[in-house]
Nucleic acid binder design. Structure first.
Lengths: 196, 196
DNA sequence: AGCATTAATTATCTTTTGTTAATCTTTCGG
DNA sequence: CCGAAAGATTAACAAAAGATAATTAATGCT
């Protein structure tokens, strides 16, 4: 089922936990299997869960009044995700979450997770780890918006996440860069012609 | 010296700590008094500290190869700040930190803070509190860059942080919005003429 | 394989932003 | 209170981005 060795490798903090701790934690999780296109959390929902992407790829997106979708985040294998509105502020999710590929999610209810965290302080290390990771990504994303042009942001994205470039439509990447798909297409052309 | 009541009010998690815990923590802090313009952490530095703004206002900014400064963050009273590069990644700070007003900072060495956190798990609540707060700010900042135009971002900033509008130069705000000061000036004019 | 759908590119035009420099305004130190 | 310095605005032009629509390319489905 869950490949413990692989997970341990990805998350050093797990080394700190006893097998019993891990087993208790895993006992509260369940596996969700999704097909490409499946939506597992709707904008407006309050269902608090924390998800670990065992395999596959997930996007979250915002739908505006005209039904236009704007993708704001992608999460792939070995990454953790949740609706930050629900889990941090107890508000309904602003975003919808959708699998883009056949995807396996290991999920745990947020309320149960909180109980486990209260009961077992050692789990705290895991929480801290993921918060730090997310925080570092966010801080650097903000600095990119402030310091870099759209073209530079695209080039940085392409080098930072080369795997994603072939796995998701360009329009999602355009959204995340804060520009329109049309504009990204022009940027790509500009870059291509620059280097002959 | 430190107004405990005020701090308790601002940070609910402190209620959880015993007076002894608080006193031990405070024993490791020291007060730094700055005048407007003083720089207390330079780009490239590795001095790990966590700062609490008791009074005043602080900006962090990036200096590029041409000596151009770009402000990326402001922190005012009752906010916590640190160099995220130093504290999260053990790398030199990308930014310089400067007081914009007469400012009092309560500071503690990051290494000592880590020791205290290891020794006293109850302090963890405080760390979690600030990480959540920072994370929520960052996530919403990113969503603003993705979903809002520069003009909308400015209007949102003006309503979210009305105090800051009169306390800092517009050019710093322009930087944080990811646009040039000239462009912000035009946006402000556009808005002013729109509503007659 | 063939058709329908979706994504990507291109084209055209409008709007906004960046850049540079000049001109007001404000602020601050002597 | 005055003059220097820094900030904000304005102007003028070039470059980039948004919006819309048309065309081409890719993808998925039966």
């Amino acid at each position: 089922m869950v490949d413990l060795e692989k997970i341990k490798q990805a998350f050093p903090f797990i080394q700190e936990l006893s097998p019993t701790d891990i087993m208790e934690f895993l006992g509260h999780t369940r596996l969700m299997e999704l097909e490409a296109g499946d939506i597992f959390l709707e904008q407006g929902s309050r269902k608090g869960c924390i998800y670990f992407v065992k395999s596959g790829l997930v996007r979250s997106y915002y739908t505006d009044d005209n039904g236009e979708e704007t993708t704001n985040r992608l999460r792939c294998e070995n990454e953790v995700l949740s609706s930050y509105e629900i889990d941090l502020f107890d508000k309904p999710s602003r975003f919808t979450f959708q699998a883009l590929e056949p995807t396996e999610l290991i999920m745990i209810d947020s309320a149960i997770m909180r109980q486990l965290l209260d009961k077992n302080p050692k789990l705290e290390a895991g929480r801290t780890y993921f918060m730090k990771k997310t925080l570092s990504e966010c801080l650097s994303a903000i600095d990119d918006f402030i310091l870099l042009s759209p073209e530079k942001r695209y080039l940085k994205f392409a080098t930072d996440y080369p795997q994603l470039m072939n796995r998701v439509p360009m329009k999602y990447i355009a959204n995340m860069l804060g520009i329109t798909p049309v504009s990204l297409s022009r940027i790509r052309k500009r870059i291509a012609t620059k280097k002959h």
